[in-house]
Design a protein around this nucleic acid. Sequence first.
DNA 1: CACGGAAGTTGACGCCGTCAACATCGAGGA
DNA 2: TCCTCGATGTTGACGGCGTCAACTTCCGTG
Lengths: 217, 217
Amino acid sequence: MGTPKTAPRTSYHHGDLRNALMDSAVELARLGGPAAVVLREVARRVGVSATAAYRHFSAADELVDEVKHAALAKLAESIERAVEAVPADGDPGDVAVARLRASAEGYLDFAFNETGLFQTAFCREEMEHPEGTEKGRPFAESAAFQMFSGLLDEVLAAGRMAPQWRDGAEIAGWSMVHGFAVLTTDGPLGRHVPDEAKAFIRQRTIDLLLRGLTATD
Amino acid sequence: MGTPKTAPRTSYHHGDLRNALMDSAVELARLGGPAAVVLREVARRVGVSATAAYRHFSAADELVDEVKHAALAKLAESIERAVEAVPADGDPGDVAVARLRASAEGYLDFAFNETGLFQTAFCREEMEHPEGTEKGRPFAESAAFQMFSGLLDEVLAAGRMAPQWRDGAEIAGWSMVHGFAVLTTDGPLGRHVPDEAKAFIRQRTIDLLLRGLTATD
DNA sequence: CACGGAAGTTGACGCCGTCAACATCGAGGA
DNA sequence: TCCTCGATGTTGACGGCGTCAACTTCCGTG
């Protein structure tokens, strides 16, 4: 525990402490989720006294919130990567649906491959962010949510979705993917379900979602 | 804080300390979620020294886990109540679908009305429970899950669901309802979405799920 | 070149979970 | 009847946590 990762610095001042603390905190979150982001441990790893962090963060919770938003950004990246990897040729409706599906896959890939960061991204917001700022902003304006919303618009425009089902579809769809991620990572399905079963129900869950969104009744 | 809730006891021994601690812990969880279940505070409220709890729980985490399972049981009750309230007359298919819908409503009612307990029910399992015991048992054998599974069987038997979609439907459906509950209680949708909007997307989410499950292709 | 403020340090406080050692009480055998 | 012994509580202490006040170091600017 608490092994310093960098050689002890030479000068009294660090020079880039804020970033160093963030990097260390993100690493801890990656390995152990939000609970692992412990101020004193973060400082220890950077080789600095615990209270030094207070020159850059108003409280430990603020540091966690920064990590949280970094994790959210990485999640958005994972989704975007998956969506962009879908070949754009072929029937526009098929492409739109494939891209939507890919967004769910990217979401779940991140949840499984970066479980600690995923948990941190959705842990309780500790600080109150002022209304106007980037972090106080409604989740509906976040990068990931906007992307998902755009993908649904594509599906609608391609005629693969009944217009009366468009409204609220972001949240309904998000709920399903997120719920599956939560239940199968830190949740009750995490430990007792073998991996191949998880892979099956993962596809099942996405299939069911797409079926609900694109059914033609 | 720390106001004792009962008159200071008269005898050296409490007599029913384990239950008293549990009640107090459940109350704290109800008000503040899993993080509010603090061993010293629980003991303080019961009017007993902190270490007395160690005669009944091996560690603080064990106490939290007990609360967790109590909360899970209450969730199952809420679902059951909602399902039983559905009138059983009319077309069997309609009844089966209505009961399935009611289970989702009962789930979400609990999440919104008892947010602290809901969060506690799904917080990370702190202790390792031995394989065979009631608490080490797979979630798939829990009361709530079994009930949900039975409701899906009813829908299938009533011919309102294509058989090839039955497999894995518990988890897919559970994911959607759970995801919505998580996102709108402690999650990012909790603070910024007004209540009437929540009510709309709540129905939307359930509708989408039922549509996916019962669509006739 | 002095000097003022930004960026680190030390030491302390109260909170937490936990342990070891001690105190109290009630049930059951001598 | 009394004695004892195990179950159940208590006290005091330890280390770890977040945080504050007071002090120190160093760099950029006038």
